[in-house]
Design a protein around this nucleic acid. Sequence first.
RNA 1: GGUCCCGUAGCUCAGUUGGAUAGAGCAACAGCCUUCUAAGCUGUGGGUCGCGCGUUCGAGUCGCGCCGGGAUCACCA
Length: 596
Amino acid sequence: MIEKKLLEQTCEAIRHLYGQEIKPESVGLEKTKREITGDYTIVVFSLLKISRKSPEATANEIGIFLKDKVAEICDFNVIKGFLNLVLSDHFWIKFLEKHGTRPGFGFQKPRHERPVVLEYSSPNTNKPLHLGHIRNNLLGFSLAEILKANGHKIVKVNLVNDRGIHICKSMLAYMKWGNNATPASTGMKGDHLIGLYYVMFNQHYKAEIHDLIEKGLTEEEAERQAPLIQEAQDILRKWESKDPGTFDLWRKMNNWAYEGFDQTYHRLGVDFDKIYHESETYLLGKKLVDEGLKAGTLIQKEDGSIWADLRDEGLDEKLLLRADGTSVYMTQDLGTAQLRYDDYHPSSMIYVVGNEQNYHFDVLKRVLTKLGKNWASHINHLSYGMVELPAGKMKSREGTVVDADDLIDEMIQTAEETTRELGKADELSETDAGKLFNTIGLGALKYFILKVDPKKNMLFDPKESIDFNGNTGPFIQYTYARIQSLLGKSNEAGFLWEDVTVSTELTLERLEKETIVRLYQFQEAVVQAGDEMSPAVIANYVFDLAKVFNQFYQELPVLKEVDKEKVFLRLLITNFVGETIRKSMSLLGIQVPLRM
RNA sequence: GGUCCCGUAGCUCAGUUGGAUAGAGCAACAGCCUUCUAAGCUGUGGGUCGCGCGUUCGAGUCGCGCCGGGAUCACCA
């Protein structure tokens, strides 16, 4: 709001000084760099054509006008073409008093009526979740929180890919070598048990291919003719014809997977409002395709298969329905999109899906548009990059994946070791200590993943990358814990700081002001994160805030000051920083401990 | 080959609608616990922002062309 005022008054200054009208948007207003005195900077280079004076003279004239007209500006300085405006301490202190104790700060945006449907996670039921899913789940959950903070209603949706050849492979291996094992009989998580058979299938399948190639077949022939894959396809056909035995096993094994997933989701702290199953929705797309064919927007080839012709849009033809009438991936996604639209009439539909499917979503939107769905333009793909390991890429078939549950265990264990080493768990009960290790371990993991720009591929080094010092979750949690301790101490010491008000003459020290300025910018960071669909904005913001506060904490006494107003002011800042850290971290799905 | 994404310090990453001397963390080295939690703070060293050309008062940021890495272009999902 102060920005708006500065922009308007700058226009006023130009009208007054040079007799020309310009638009507020065309004024170059930005935050002053940290090393330079000032809070806001107006870049005047673009105004030189109007002023017909040197950059320094122009900046000076505008500065004089603004200082005179805007009460909040107490001073200004000019460096080359940069007009640095200094806002008064009084302005910042008033801001602190107004917002410092209000818990909802940063969330004053108007509510939106229509919801946003946000799909994330979307697991396959034939193997457990891995590191890639963790990035997906954390991004999805965090984005939901950020959008909520921006006034949106959110429907979190999970689309479970519970049918197809992959689950049949696990089923086949189980029938052959499973010995009726169950999660209960083996003590394994259901999804891990199923994953075991998926790996088993691939091992035997690979061996069969190898043998067939020895016998003189080409690789392609071998892959197609191996008995195991043919048996798996047979199971798929039985499933599609609803063969009772196959269907029962399918249901049983899928339920194991769901139980396993639920545990992992619970540990990660993510949840869903609605779960769609592809087995229930995969037929719906066919109807859309039929309608498109009748309307003449789709084409049918001689063998009966149906296609969308996207060549005049720079893409290729895309198969939508096989010759035998069965559906493909795109068909299903058309159907689920329509279903989702009918269910919620959302203002937008967001899909959190890896960037390897960029093309798929491009095509999905175009086909829906072709089918006359004008809401297709409201589909957004939050495309995130792969998580790479130091050893190379993750390949599920080659066993070079990082299992989600293992990773979480490892993080919590490392947190425990480090915490005990520092002697911080000594005074805690077993349950409290356990909770703390959990909070720290998961905080480290979540922050590490979320601080990276989603669209970029990222490197995950389990040994070295997970640290508890520096730009990490635990560092921010630690800052919060110290703040809580400090506030507790202030209560013990009997500071009735809610009764005090700060006089207008009080001046801010550099670190106080820097901290307040960052708090002021918090709301903007939330909006930006929402627009860019990037929790990384929040993560990097809150680290910056915590870092500045640690300096503040180190250099400025908070409770030892004699001046009661100073104590009050610093407690106000401390409390405000604490609240902002808590809120920011909750937008990332990260908990903060009261002590650590 | 077509399309899309990425390339910033030894490593992992930030870098606001193009702005001032490109920033953090890790790692290395040197300091700071009798003082609100040292998972902290301060300091030092470390850069051809992949390369080139262009746009302009000004380019890590925008445009074009190269180089390098990745993804995708399936009757898999």
